[in-house]
């Protein structure tokens, strides 16, 4: 064996360490899950349950019967994929679409590559993008928050990003879009409809801080993503505020926080070194803003993460981790 083999993370020292990391991720996700259940009610619980059960069950079935290597079943990691997938879906998603998503996440994005640690693309994001292009109507009709703390009837609506995009495409300016839809800039940030995981920035940040304290993740990837988005949108909205949305709006809406804090930081599909992580994050920020400003989709976080996932092996080659025993 080559003594200087650099293997991509996660470095599996023992089964216990991966398990404890994944358990920490589940704990970190719990405030977000709680908030999404409070906001979206029973439908969100159904999505969560279907997603986690089918992800765990599928991984076990594939490892045991299809690949005949039961040791590949990763347990907690499959549960994390299931929870993240649920957080990425609208609460109104029919159960069978959630199952299709689980098949894509576990079957195609994870197990086809050889299971945990081998996959190039983030399984939950892959499933989200697959579902987005496969079931565009169901995946873009987000429910307006309605759950245990709202009490109004469920209404379907577009996300703030979608509303702005549609208005801009029709040649309106941002202030015209806002007045046409009867809202002001502050309401746009408050009444956000979206997937379960996109609803509460506070819960996401709280969970992420827990991960930081437990030293499970490093902050460089999220910081560079959010800083890039802030800088780009500040420049564009500074030049032409009527056609480009500003930093606050771009950071707080859509999947940016969920993506930056929990999806882009996935161990397997992000670069190992700190500087590699910064390059990765800046790339994601750039692509998101290009899609949001110039693309035809209103949101680009999932696409951005997937595109940068492809570059991770390359980034890892360019930024070797510091080797031990060197000055």
């Amino acid at each position: 064996m080559d003594k200087l083999t650099v293997s991509p993370s996660p470095h599996l020292h023992s089964k216990a360490s991966t398990t404890s990391i994944m358990r920490d991720v589940v704990i970190a996700l719990s405030p977000t899950i709680l908030v999404s259940i409070l906001f979206y009610g029973w439908s969100e619980i159904l999505v969560l349950a279907v997603s986690s059960v089918s992800c765990v069950l599928l991984e076990w079935l594939i490892a045991k019967y299809l690949m005949k290597r039961p040791e590949l079943f990763s347990g907690w990691s499959a549960l994390v994929t299931g929870l993240l997938l649920a957080m990425n879906l609208p609460s109104s998603t029919p159960w069978w679409i959630v199952v299709v998503g689980a098949i894509v996440a576990i079957g195609i994005a994870k197990m086809s590559f050889g299971g945990l640690g081998q996959n190039i693309f983030n399984p939950a994001i892959t499933a989200r993008v697959f579902l987005l292009i496969s079931f565009p109507v169901q995946m873009t009709n987000w429910s307006v928050p309605d759950g245990f703390i709202g009490g109004v009837d469920a209404v379907s609506g577009a996300t703030p990003l979608g509303i702005i995009k549609e208005g801009l495409k029709a040649g309106q300016s941002i202030s015209e879009v806002l007045s046409a839809n009867g809202m002001d800039a502050r309401m746009l940030l408050r009444d956000i409809g979206g997937s379960g995981g996109e609803i509460s920035a506070l819960a996401l940040v709280a969970g992420f801080i827990y991960l930081l304290v437990r030293k499970v993740v490093k902050p460089w990837i999220p910081i560079s993503i959010i800083a890039t988005i802030a800088v780009i949108s500040a420049i564009f909205s500074g030049i032409d505020p009527e056609h480009f949305t500003g930093p606050n709006f771009n950071i707080m809406t859509g999947g940016v926080l969920l993506g930056a804090l929990f999806m882009a930081t996935d161990y397997v599909t992000s670069p190992m070194s700190n500087w590699g992580g910064v390059i990765f994050g800046v790339g994601i920020g750039l692509i998101v803003m290009m899609i949001r400003y110039f693309g035809s989709y209103p949101e680009g976080m999932s696409f951005a993460i997937l595109i940068m996932n492809c570059f991770v092996p390359l980034i890892n080659r360019a930024f070797h981790q510091k080797k031990y025993g060197r000055a």
Partner: peptide, 9 residues
Amino acid sequence: ITASTITSR
């Protein structure tokens, strides 16, 4: 058309 206002327009 559902969710396709731009095309319908």
